[in-house]
Design a protein around this nucleic acid. Structure first.
Lengths: 193, 193
DNA sequence: ACAAACCTATCAACTGATAGATAGCTTAGT
DNA sequence: ACTAAGCTATCTATCAGTTGATAGGTTTGT
């Protein structure tokens, strides 16, 4: 692994724990065994480093997710695959979603970093829309968008609260609610039961 | 307003924008017109200041919410009252929920601050449980807990994402889903349709 | 010869925190 | 009524530490 990617890995741990302010060039440098001035060779400014971190995090996340419709063809539910990624963050990584944390701080984030954070959410909503479309349970596009956004918001919120309370309860209830989303929304949006 | 509460007000704006690291004693001091050393008179350490901020935020939030069952008696839905509080943060304050942000950072927060943040969430879940109980739509206690946790997670997540994307869309879809929660959960938990 | 990857040394700025002084108010003792 | 003691809220001055960033030099591989 190159020093550059070692730096990003070290930064990721810190940002997912405490946000943008929770890492310094000196810390990262000493962790990977170089000097702080050398970090500036790879990343001109702190803003650049964090922006690239968020960019690569997004790419890795989406690559790992793969193609939503492929899961359906295998008889798997892509939404369950998606929730498993968040469960992994909570139980294995024991860390926040990088962009969940950056998003919360977005009000005081450098422009490039905020831009990459937005990109993460847009891409994720898009993936979830494709997933719900592939499941072809509901018809209207607005219902699909609604489910996609609700799913993402629920997972980000549940991850944050479960991590804070040191208990998986909120997360488990949230994912149970997502499983019910398919039947739910059809009932309340438009059609009255 | 006393200097102490002015300091807390100034700190709140900054923390709700960028988290624990986004305020300094000097900034607060100069904003309220005293010197940074004097801030230590009111709050021995930064940790103490942030902990008191989170404590008072929680008290103010719950006081403002009032008694959930009282709304039911007035023919109002306390869950809608609750979601309005979050909508106010998004559209009027244009800020995060203080504890939503601190919760995201909880991995690197001083102990006292993390404790107060946990307290916020526990109290809010409790309030929502009372609210869903007062509505007596569903019966089982675990269904009520599930709805309470899901509602909170959804609102915290939706607020964060809507703020980041600079669009109310995610928030609107999330609150619509909460309105559907009553009918939803009964369908999916236990009873099969 | 050249460039990528690193170094040393240093900068100005900012951080939380402390020590010690002061002015003004309140209270208790006589 | 006067004073001594103590509290509240602020100040000046300063500390040691950290921060992101820069200029310019060195090493290493091709």
């Amino acid at each position: 692994m190159s020093k550059k990617s070692e730096l990003l890995a070290a930064a990721e741990l810190r940002v997912r724990d405490g946000g943008y302010a929770n890492f310094s060039f000196r810390e990262l440098a000493s962790e990977v065994g170089i000097k702080s001035a050398s970090v500036h060779y790879h990343f001109p400014t702190k803003e650049d480093l964090a922006a690239e971190l968020a960019y690569q995090y997004t790419e890795r996340f989406l690559t790992s997710l793969g193609d939503p419709s492929a899961y359906v063809q295998q008889g798997k539910n892509p939404i369950e695959v998606y929730t498993e990624h968040f469960r992994h963050a909570l139980l294995v990584d024991k860390q926040m979603c990088l962009c969940g944390l950056l998003g919360a701080e977005s009000g005081s984030l450098p422009e490039k970093v905020k831009h990459e954070t937005k990109r993460f959410f847009k891409r994720n909503i898009n993936w979830l829309e494709q997933a719900y479309t592939s499941l072809h349970i509901t018809n209207s596009e607005s219902e699909i968008t609604s489910k996609a956004m609700t799913t993402l918001a629920l997972l980000e919120g549940a991850l944050m609260i479960s991590k804070t309370l040191d208990s998986i309860d909120v997360f488990e209830h949230a994912t149970a609610a997502i499983k019910g989303l398919a039947e739910i929304m059809g009932e309340t949006t438009g059609r009255k039961k």
